[in-house]
Design a protein around this nucleic acid. Structure first.
Lengths: 334, 334
DNA sequence: ACAGTTTTCGGGAACGTTTGCGATGTATAA
DNA sequence: TTATACATCGCAAACGTTCCCGAAAACTGT
């Protein structure tokens, strides 16, 4: 290991490590001439600051943790892109962890992130998380925390999300106006705030339009493509009077339903309409193209990252809840 | 900051830090009784090992760097899932960086990863990378390195890739057998090995079948959706005799072309056939569904991660090049 | 000339671990 | 009894920084 340290530079120049350290960080208390010499030999020796040592001394790393259910999901990948762009500029690095929609994984990941002495944490909770004590640990350790999308209202922390209730309401309102009456809902588990809000928005829109709410038309399941497949099948099997439209809690769920609908031989939107949530790019390419709600995933990540940076720098406890505006995207599937 | 350290435990129990440290790592030189007491009070005090201090002492962190062009691309997101699953089990954390298809970003990211004293590095190079000195720096610092997918044959390091030449050959062979004769190729930049190999496979398949190679039918461009759009348009504009099939270097490029083809009013596959590369899930949902080559992105990540772990643990210099098998997926678009 | 100020630098502790080596105590064997 | 072995633990250095504080050197004004 030919690792060059600050001491090597100091020895070569007959200086102390203090001076070299200061010179490298442009401290005014060291003469301009020395600063230049130090920087020059640092380059020559290919010196690289040891970030680990710096972090230990500072008591905190320059790494922020990002905890998501699954990176492979376009929605979270987009969010990560937003986070990454912001953090890159701020000279922070990103440690990425997946819960894989599993509570135990989530808890374990939080634990190791705390051990890494991360400068901040951003998380979107798993589908199955019902207890939140692990996030209290984060706060106990004075680590700035912000939730995004799948937020958690029990923990006092900032968050970035969308107005799921309103967006779902508007979408269902649109379906009703289009003439659909038996509108089914492939819902998520109700412990997830976003799932619950979308369900409530759905229900409220029905009531607002005096369309009777039929519990038979609601299937509670996961948020992913596979859940959409089984969701549609159980829904279609158990309904004597078939639904004429489906509002899926997420686009992946809609895609799952989409494929099963086609297998069944039904035509979209003539036999049954379909709508999703989050504007996955695939939705624009399928036929018929998918009606959905645009969430601007990239922006969610960007804003959440900026929020985190704020609370890291200003060291403020202020809790801020930001709402990213949504947009109803009307396409051929309805 | 109520940070509990090993010293706090030592003080409380009237032990030395050495003993506590050894007790926590189950060292046999400390009595079973002491080990238990130490572990008990560690729990009580909510002690968390400071990974930064451990890393400094060890001279290396437990973090591995992953450098990809863009996380938001499904292909890389899948790979990351594979990497993540393997590394999680091995108790390594993942620091993720994006080059955004930009050479300068790539160089800068490599530099900061070295400064982080990462335990290993996995990279898929950017579209525009033509010089590779920054990877020599990685090797100079004795950091195990493995390339995946967009590999780099100039640097002596392990790699995981697919047989792009053969897969492209087989795909074009299939197109020829289907009766297509004016087969165009939306190619990638030739500095990328995967792009070059796919092009060469394409060309070889034509020659093998005595189909004349027409340079006019090849457009060299990027690897993303936008590139597919402009690629198709320039291709279609400049050809007097229109192509009857298109082989796109990646699925995103195929999707870009797909959309423009539909805008033009052409029918796939009757007016023009279309094929991609990498089996993006979207390809199965569009209509007509996309003929492509399955690359098993998840496996690429998995195998690459295992390769890296090997060279970290065994500290061996052996360079291994692994090839992940591909599979031709014949669908409606051809 | 001197005292006072400013500029420039070094000594050394601290961050939280790990680990080689020595010290102590106890048990075993002759 | 003494010598030897083993079990258990502590001391202190080391990892590479940063930064407080003090010291030396240079400069200022009278």
């Amino acid at each position: 290991m030919s690792k060059i340290t600050i001491t090597d530079i100091a020895n070569k120049l007959n200086l102390s490590t203090s001076t070299v350290s200061r010179a490298l960080s442009d401290h005014p208390e060291v003469s301009v001439r020395t600063r230049e010499i130090v920087r020059k030999t640092a380059r020559e020796l290919k010196y690289r600051p040891n970030i680990i040592a710096q972090s230990l001394q500072r008591g905190q790393s320059n790494i922020i943790g990002v905890l998501v259910p699954q990176v492979r999901h376009v929605f979270f990948a987009e969010i990560m892109a937003g986070i990454s762009d912001v953090m890159e500029k701020a000279r922070y690095n990103i440690l990425i962890c997946q819960s894989n929609e599993n509570y135990e994984n989530e808890v374990r990941n939080v634990e190791t992130l705390i051990q890494q002495r991360i400068a901040g944490l951003m998380v979107s909770i798993s589908e199955r998380t019902k207890h939140f004590d692990h996030f209290l640990q984060v706060l106990d350790n004075k680590i700035p925390l912000v939730f995004f999308d799948r937020i958690c209202s029990v923990i006092p922390a900032s968050s970035v999300s969308t107005n799921d209730y309103q967006a779902a309401f508007d979408l269902v309102q649109f379906l009703v106006e289009k003439g659909y009456r038996r509108i089914a809902h492939l819902a998520g588990f109700s412990n997830l705030q976003i799932a619950q809000q979308r369900f409530l928005g759905y229900k409220a829109a029905l009531e607002y339009n005096k369309v009777p709410f039929d519990p038979e038309l609601v299937v509670e399941n996961g948020l992913n493509e596979e859940d959409g497949k089984v969701g549609f099948l159980t829904l279609y099997k158990r309904c004597k009077v078939k639904p004429d439209a489906i509002f899926a809690v997420t686009d992946p769920v809609a895609f799952g339903a989409f494929q099963e609908i086609k297998k069944t031989g039904l035509k979209i939107p003539d036999d049954i309409a379909l709508a999703g949530f989050s504007n996955n790019p695939t939705g624009a390419m399928i036929e018929p193209s998918l009606t959905t709600v645009n969430q601007s995933a990239y922006d969610i990540g960007k804003v959440a990252a900026e929020l985190l940076l704020d609370s890291i720098k200003n060291n403020k406890q202020t809790i801020i809840h930001k709402i990213i505006p949504t947009e109803l995207i009307k396409r051929q599937s309805t």
